[in-house]
Design a protein around this nucleic acid. Sequence first.
DNA 1: CGCTAGATGAGA
DNA 2: CTCATCTAGCGA
Length: 175
Amino acid sequence: MVGTELVWEKCAGLVVETEAYLVEGDEACHTFKRPSARAFVERNKPGAAYVYFTYGAHWMLNVLVKGGPRDGIILIRALEPRRGIDLMRKRRGLEDVRRLCSGPGKLTQALAITKRHHEIDLCSDPAHCFRARPNDNLEVVADPRIGISCAKDFPWRFSLRDSPFVSVPVKRPRR
DNA sequence: CGCTAGATGAGA
DNA sequence: CTCATCTAGCGA
């Protein structure tokens, strides 16, 4: 998904950072402890939006993927704003383009994503979808997930190499 | 720049 | 009680 364009009504941005959560056996995935999350996976097709509220303040946008034992939920963590930037600025109350969508809670605020988008199909609505883009030299790096308190070792945070739009800069080896 | 505190609501 | 976060406020 990194490198695709997330289209959201009047706004759009390049996906530059995601995190993968595995439905089976991943302690950090909602399905590990929540029957409601498992029911969501059961009743939905791949491409369904999984939107939830956390820390009493922030919405998180996730996408359901399916592949048998590799069923998963992908958290969209950061975007490089491409369209509707002034609208994003207004919603965020910020000017700096790099800070508009550089975090999972920031991008939902910039795109006005809330509970009402939970469970919508992101494969059938042109106003809410991921568009493939021609990417010639796309370099994606994998690192440990951040912001979680368990299963920290899985290197399932994926980001566009050297993107200045990610949430937390990827640690680069010194040279 | 880095660090910390605290807001705030839903699920279990 | 925990939590896949963010920002203001403070100090260097």
